[in-house]
Simulated assay, not measured.
Amino acid sequence: MHSWQIQEAKARMSEIIKRAQEQPQDITLHGKSVAVVISRAEFDRLSRAEGSLVDFMRRSPLYDVDDMELERDKSLTREVAL
């Protein structure tokens, strides 16, 4: 991954976008990574939903478990001021 200082990135944005089609481009500020430019295809791949929440829950190993006992912690979460 190529790294760019933010000042240089502003001046060469079109080149960064072209390079991002091949590999992610790192943007730094004061030597620390603050952003990464990736291609749209890579973004779509990373953010693609894998079905609905209902589908996810149905794939759970606990989906058909009827005898599960859940117990709530009844302790206070903070001190109560009187």
Rank of each mutant, 00 (worst) to 15 (best):
M1I: 05
H2E: 13
S3N: 05
W4Q: 02
Q5P: 07
Q5V: 10
Q5M: 05
Q5K: 13
E8L: 07
E8Y: 03
E8M: 06
E8V: 13
A9K: 10
K10D: 10
K10P: 00
A11C: 02
A11L: 14
A11G: 03
A11H: 10
R12K: 15
R12N: 15
M13L: 15
M13Q: 10
M13I: 09
S14T: 15
E15F: 02
K18V: 07
K18C: 04
R19M: 11
R19F: 07
A20L: 03
A20C: 09
Q21C: 02
E22I: 04
Q23K: 13
Q23V: 06
Q23G: 01
Q23Y: 08
Q25L: 04
D26T: 04
D26V: 12
D26M: 07
D26R: 04
I27R: 03
I27L: 12
T28G: 01
T28C: 12
L29M: 13
H30K: 14
H30A: 15
G31E: 08
G31Y: 11
K32W: 04
K32D: 11
K32N: 11
S33P: 00
S33K: 13
V34N: 08
V34C: 12
I38H: 00
I38D: 00
I38L: 05
I38W: 03
S39G: 14
S39L: 07
R40L: 12
R40D: 12
R40C: 01
A41E: 14
F43K: 04
F43A: 13
D44P: 00
D44A: 00
D44E: 15
D44C: 02
R45P: 00
L46T: 01
L46W: 09
S47E: 01
S47I: 03
S47Q: 05
S47L: 05
S47V: 00
S47K: 00
A49M: 02
A49F: 04
A49Q: 07
A49N: 02
E50L: 08
E50D: 15
E50I: 02
G51K: 06
G51N: 09
G51A: 09
S52N: 05
L53H: 05
L53D: 06
L53I: 11
L53V: 10
V54F: 09
D55G: 11
D55T: 11
F56M: 11
F56E: 06
F56W: 07
R58L: 14
R58E: 15
R58C: 05
S60F: 04
P61N: 01
P61R: 06
P61L: 01
L62Q: 09
L62Y: 14
L62S: 06
Y63I: 00
D64C: 00
D64N: 13
D64R: 10
V65Q: 13
V65H: 09
D67W: 03
M68C: 04
M68V: 10
E69F: 01
E71T: 03
R72G: 02
D73L: 08
K74H: 05
K74P: 00
S75Q: 14
R78S: 15
R78Y: 11
E79T: 14
E79R: 12
V80F: 14
A81I: 09
A81F: 11
